[in-house]
Simulated assay, not measured.
Amino acid sequence: MNTSIDATFHALLRGWADALVADDADRIGAFAEPDWMLVGPEGGAVGRETFLAFVASGDLTHSAMDFTVLDARVYGDVAVVLAHGTNRGSWRGEPFAADEWVTDVFVRRPGGWLCALSALTPNYAAAHETAPEGSSS
């Protein structure tokens, strides 16, 4: 583990999380490549412009978001970051909460690192640990 690299990406993800909680589409977009894709279990692949339009319209809001970098590996101008993330918000007025593993692929640009791809994997172990005794989650 390289603590300097981990700290770099922790700070980057903290800034991105702050932009998401602020529901500021322009700030959020500044962290991502123009062709950034988000892949999640609920809706599959969503492109940057679609995601930012959901934020700008108020369909998607976040009230809390936190990331813990678990591993960051740099391969020249590409970095792969594994993080544990939690967040809360609402989707079209319906509240949600998520505990997930986040895999981000970043590319180094003249202005810094930009995310090219984010993949979300639900943390099923956490959901199972918090399930009431006798439930079948």
Rank of each mutant, 00 (worst) to 15 (best):
M65E: 15
F106V: 05
G43E: 09
N123Y: 06
P110M: 08
P41S: 12
G40A: 14
A126P: 00
F51W: 10
V105Q: 07
S118D: 10
A127D: 06
A97I: 06
G58W: 08
P122D: 09
G43R: 13
P34D: 14
A116I: 09
G44S: 05
G76K: 02
V102C: 02
P122S: 14
S118T: 15
A56E: 06
T61K: 10
A83H: 03
V69K: 00
T103W: 05
H84A: 15
T50Q: 15
G112Q: 11
Y124R: 04
F31S: 04
G58M: 09
V55Y: 01
V102M: 02
A98D: 15
H62V: 10
D66K: 10
R73C: 08
P110G: 07
G76F: 11
T50I: 14
W36K: 05
T68L: 14
T68I: 12
G58S: 08
A72Q: 00
G111I: 03
G112Y: 10
D71A: 12
G43C: 05
F54E: 11
G43T: 03
A72H: 01
P41W: 05
A119T: 14
L117Y: 12
L117Q: 09
G29A: 13
W101P: 01
Y124D: 05
G58L: 12
G40I: 03
P122F: 05
P95K: 01
G43S: 13
L117I: 07
V55P: 03
V81W: 00
E100V: 15
F51N: 01
E42R: 15
W91D: 09
Y75H: 14
W91S: 13
W91M: 15
V80L: 14
G93Q: 07
T61H: 05
T61A: 11
V74D: 06
V81N: 00
V78D: 11
V55L: 06
V69Q: 01
V55F: 05
R48T: 07
H84L: 13
E94L: 13
P110N: 07
T86E: 13
H84I: 03
G47M: 05
A30E: 02
A32T: 11
V46G: 02
G85L: 06
P122I: 02
A64T: 09
R48F: 10
V39T: 11
M65W: 10
R92Q: 14
E49C: 06
F31D: 08
D77M: 11
A64I: 07
V107T: 09
